[in-house]
Design a binder for these strands. Sequence first.
DNA 1: GTCTATATTTCGATAGAC
DNA 2: GTCTATCGAAATATAGAC
Lengths: 203, 203
Amino acid sequence: MASSQKPSTRERILDIALELFSEQGYDKTSLRDIAERLGTTKAALYYHFERKEDILLALHLRLHEIGRDVLVRLDELESAQAYVEAWPQLMDELIDRVAQNRELVLLHLRNARALESIGADERHQAENQDMLERFGRLFANPEIPLADRVRMTCSIGAALAGLIDTEDRFGDVDGAVLVELVRGSVRDMLTPLGAPSEPIPSG
Amino acid sequence: MASSQKPSTRERILDIALELFSEQGYDKTSLRDIAERLGTTKAALYYHFERKEDILLALHLRLHEIGRDVLVRLDELESAQAYVEAWPQLMDELIDRVAQNRELVLLHLRNARALESIGADERHQAENQDMLERFGRLFANPEIPLADRVRMTCSIGAALAGLIDTEDRFGDVDGAVLVELVRGSVRDMLTPLGAPSEPIPSG
DNA sequence: GTCTATATTTCGATAGAC
DNA sequence: GTCTATCGAAATATAGAC
């Protein structure tokens, strides 16, 4: 009920900003760039967003929305072992979402520093139980075997590398095919999850 | 013969810039920031570097130097099959070098856009048969099976994710141990390399 | 909601003394 | 090699008319 039909000016600004921020970077994109592409002026943007930062933040919330229920599912797990067991399926889901929102993910990868700066900002502490911070805490959990935590960390990097900013390499490859290949690669890295890496003291 | 002993002002500038650029980003780091940390003034920097860009470029050349012989070895390979067969060992080597130059690699990941901009610059076309561009061409090579190219791409992302910007997660883990765990994860993703993914027309 | 100004700040870069 | 002083350009943000 809260979507579709008219692309409000606000949404149009966000779409343009998404494109420019991920293309040229947040810092190198001026409000003038955005206004020009939108066919209006700098000052007009200030009617919709108080600060430039707020545009970036709104885009961050878009990604947050996309990954929200994945995070919820992550929070429902209660033991270290549960995390490890759930991880491969969670990555399957994550790979899909990343593939469906490449530009938005690229924006976050290419502007990680800028996003950190505004993350420390006043008015978003509630929203900003951030995804990366959340994954970070998970990977720092000493109850999970180190070898597994490293594998989990690497699996995210593998998925991103296989899907993001790959137009020049895999641009002519069908999207679904690429997703399956990435999924397969990640799975192979994750199958040893939970295997005892240090000899277990028996009996 | 061309190293050790006195850290020239030039090198000190580069060390400080490396730290600040990878920490705050190239764009958000002003020459004033660098000068202050060095205990001098903005203008003094211009004696050592003509432009701000040249500082970033010098750091890029540091990384280039580190990866140079890996690229040479890559160039010596002549068949698509040779690439695939050489890849796992090449990744072993790459993982070591990344681990030994984390900050420098982080700088490149976090400032990819800024580096692109100056890469298109006049006076570096020779040096700038760039690493990423080179890997990119390799991964775009249609003679190599797509499944393998995707695996190779993912393996780089996995290595980087496991080694870079991981102080908060794996900060207290011994460096050599982390390297071995990442190496193991990457190997598991690469062992299926060269396996026929599409049924081969027999006979 | 969008416009034309303009205020304000910051930064890269230069000039010239020491 | 480093300094002070300053230029000029660009960017964010604001004021106020329409």
